[in-house]
């Protein structure tokens, strides 16, 4: 260090320890003042000026996000059976949906949709309806009394549609340890042919 070393020893002595009368290092004093000046300027800038508070920052981030989302919803068009089936055939979308499934749904429905706490999603039996829009509604509104959450509040809108599509792709995959079927049988073909087959619900 290039400090002016006067090395004047003070004339006291504590158990053999002595002290120099050296001045404060200049840079130390300057930085100390700089931090004080910083503190004095910070308050007016962030609390009363253009800097903005934590709350302002959060609002701005949310606004940006909502704008992005509303664009995505407009691009999606109307949500009907067809739209959901189309999604279920979109490989990219299904890759993303699989990741969401593994992070949010797996806890109750098992890794492959085989059912655990929640019902089996791979068999054709449905407690709250098996039409693509029924599935969409179940995901969106949840079945709160039984523990199924209203994911419409938790996922971006486009993702809820994707998840409905993903559930369709699980049909008939027959994973190991499947939970016993619950609810009513639903067969898409039968529906198309005429109403007759869907009669025997409670097995």
């Amino acid at each position: 260090m290039s400090m002016p070393e006067k090395d004047k020893i003070l004339d006291h002595n504590f158990d053999g320890i002595q002290e120099y009368d050296n001045p404060l290092p200049r840079w130390w004093v300057y930085i100390f003042w700089a931090t004080i000046v910083f503190a004095v300027l910070y308050v007016p800038y962030y609390h009363f000026g253009p800097g903005g508070t934590v709350a302002d920052e959060y609002q701005a981030a949310m606004k940006e996000y909502y704008e992005q989302q509303s664009a995505a919803i407009l691009a999606m068009g109307e949500i009907n059976d067809e739209a959901i089936v189309t999604f279920s055939r979109n490989e990219g979308a299904m890759e993303e949906a699989k990741a969401i499934f593994r992070s949010k749904c797996m806890a109750c429905h098992g890794m492959f949709g085989e059912g655990q706490i929640g019902p089996n999603l791979t068999d054709p039996y449905w407690i709250h309806g098996g039409k693509p829009t029924d599935i969409y509604r179940t995901i969106h509104d949840g079945v709160v009394t039984k523990g199924m959450l209203a994911w419409g509040n938790l996922l971006p809108p486009a993702d809820v549609v994707k998840m409905a599509g993903y559930v369709l792709t699980l049909q008939g995959t027959n994973p190991p340890n499947g939970k016993a079927p619950e609810g009513e049988l639903y067969q898409p073909e039968a529906e198309a042919e005429g109403q007759q087959a869907a009669s025997a619900g409670d097995e």
Partner: peptide
């Protein structure tokens, strides 16, 4: 060794 600076202390 003596302490560097009493003032700084």
């Amino acid at each position: 060794r003596p302490v560097f600076s009493y003032k700084l202390s």
